[in-house]
Design a protein around this nucleic acid. Structure first.
Lengths: 227, 227
DNA sequence: TTGTAGTGTTACTACTCATAACACTGCACT
DNA sequence: AGTGCAGTGTTATGAGTAGTAACACTACAA
C-alpha cells in the first residue's frame, strides 16, 4: 500500500499543492470580481496565509497575473482543440464545434476572456497554446480545402506573401495562403462577436450571437471552397 | 472690446478650465501608460495640485474613468461619423472610409481603445455615441441596398426577428434585417481584427490588417447586394 | 458689507505592493 | 543521530494610492 509518488519529496508536494491553491483561489477571485480585484492581500486572506508568503511563489502581482494568463490561454486552447477532434464528424462540422467551444469558454469565463484579450496591448506573438489552437483550425481548413488548390491564393499578391510568412511563423509553412486567410478570418470574426457580446453591446439577448457566429464561420469556409 | 462670454462667471470659467485640464492630463497618462496608471495622485502631481482637490470634480477615481470612457466613445463615434460624410463619394467608398477611420482611431489611441472595449464586461447597451455611429453605418448600408428589397431578410427567420428588435432598440425601426445584419457583421469583423491587431497577435506587421479589413468589409457588403 | 457656497489646503485612515528581518522545518550530508 | 542550510512561513515596516475630515481662502450674491 506504499504510495508510488516518491519522485516528489514532501516539500515539493506541499509546494505544488500551495501553488495549485493560489491558482484556484486567484481564478475564483477573478471570475467573481475581475482581475483588478486580485490582490496578494485578498488572496492570502482567503488562504489563511500572510500576504508576504505569496512572494515565495510569485515575485510580484504582475508575475502572478502573467502566470494566470498563460494558464488561461492553455485552457482555452485545450478546450478548442478537444472540441475540434470531433470523432467521425466532417471537417466542416468540426470547425463549427471548435468555434462553438471557443465561445462557450468565453461565456463561461468572461472575466478571464477579458483578461486575455482585454488588457491591451500585451504583445502575445509567439503564444504557444494559441498557436496550437490555430494549428488545429488550419488543419481542418486544409482538409476542407482539399489538396487540389494547394497554392491557391486569396487574390491579393501582397497579402498572400504576408499570409505565407505568418503561416511560417505558426510553424505551418505548407499552409496555403487561402487557408491561412480563412483561419485568420474565422478567428477575428468569432473574437469580434464574442468580445462585443460580452460587453453587452447587443442589448443582452436581443441577438443570437451563437447563430451569428455559425453564419460567419460558414461564410468564411465558403470563401475557402467556393470562389 | 469687452468680451462676450458673460454667460459664464469667472468661477464657472475656472472650473471648466480645470475640468478640461483634468481630462487632458488624464488622457495623456492613459495614452502613455494605460488606464491602470491613472491615479488621482499622479494626476494632481502633474497639475501641481493636491490630490484631494480632484475630488471637487469627480467623486471617485471610478467616476473619472467612467467620464473618460464616455468622452472617448464620443470621440471615436465623431471620428467615424465625420469620415462617413465623405462628400460626393459613393456609399460603398464611404463605408470603407468609415471603417478606416475606426481603425485609425484605435491605432492612434490604443490604450483608450483597450479602455473602451477591453475592460469587460461593462454592459454598454444604450451607449448613445456608438448608437449614432451605428446609425451612420446603417444609413450608408441602406442606401447601398436600395429601396427594392426593403424587407429582404437574411434567410433566418428567428435571427431576422432579433435583428428587427435590435434595429428598433437603435431607434432605426425601418431598417431591413439584412442591413442590420450587415452592419453588425461589419462592426464585429472590424473590431475583431483591430482588437487582435492591437494585441500583436499577427506577429506585428506580418499581416496587413488594413487590407484584411477592406476585404472583410467588401465581403460583408456583397452579402447585402448579392445573394 | 456680509454670509455662503465653491475651491483649495494639510492631516489622517485604510488598503495595497513590496522588502527586511527573523523563526521554524524538511532534508541532505557527515 | 546530529548539523547546517535551503525553503517556507511569520511580523514589522516603507512607499504609494483612494478617500475623508477639518480647515482656509475667495468669488459672488443678498
Amino acid at each position: 500500500m506504499t504510495d508510488e509518488r516518491q519522485t516528489l519529496s514532501r516539500r515539493e508536494r506541499l509546494r505544488a499543492q500551495t501553488l495549485q491553491e493560489i491558482e484556484d483561489v486567484s481564478f475564483a477571485i477573478i471570475d467573481a470580481d475581475g482581475v483588478h480585484a486580485l490582490s496578494f492581500a485578498a488572496l492570502a486572506r482567503t488562504m489563511a496565509m500572510s500576504a508576504p508568503a505569496v512572494y515565495r511563489y510569485f515575485p510580484s502581482r504582475e508575475a502572478l497575473v502573467a502566470h494566470l494568463v498563460t494558464v488561461s490561454y492553455q485552457q482555452l486552447a485545450d478546450a478548442v482543440r478537444e472540441a475540434a477532434e470531433g470523432g467521425k464528424r466532417t471537417p466542416r462540422v468540426r470547425v463549427r464545434l471548435l468555434v462553438a467551444a471557443y465561445r462557450d469558454w468565453a461565456l463561461r469565463y468572461p472575466r478571464r476572456y477579458g483578461m486575455l484579450f482585454g488588457d491591451m496591448p500585451s504583445d502575445m506573438s509567439g503564444n504557444t497554446p494559441l498557436d496550437q489552437a490555430m494549428a488545429a483550425l488550419i488543419d481542418l481548413l486544409s482538409i476542407i480545402q482539399g489538396p487540389s488548390p494547394a497554392d491557391a491564393g486569396s487574390g491579393d499578391r501582397a497579402l498572400d506573401g504576408q499570409l505565407r510568412r505568418w503561416a511560417i511563423a505558426q510553424d505551418r509553412p505548407a499552409t496555403s495562403p487561402r487557408a491561412a486567410r480563412v483561419a485568420i478570418l474565422i478567428w477575428t470574426r468569432v473574437h469580434g462577436i464574442v468580445s462585443l457580446e460580452l460587453t453587452g453591446i447587443f442589448g443582452n439577448q436581443t441577438v443570437d450571437a451563437q447563430r451569428l457566429i455559425e453564419l460567419e464561420t460558414d461564410n468564411a469556409i465558403s470563401a475557402l471552397v467556393g470562389t
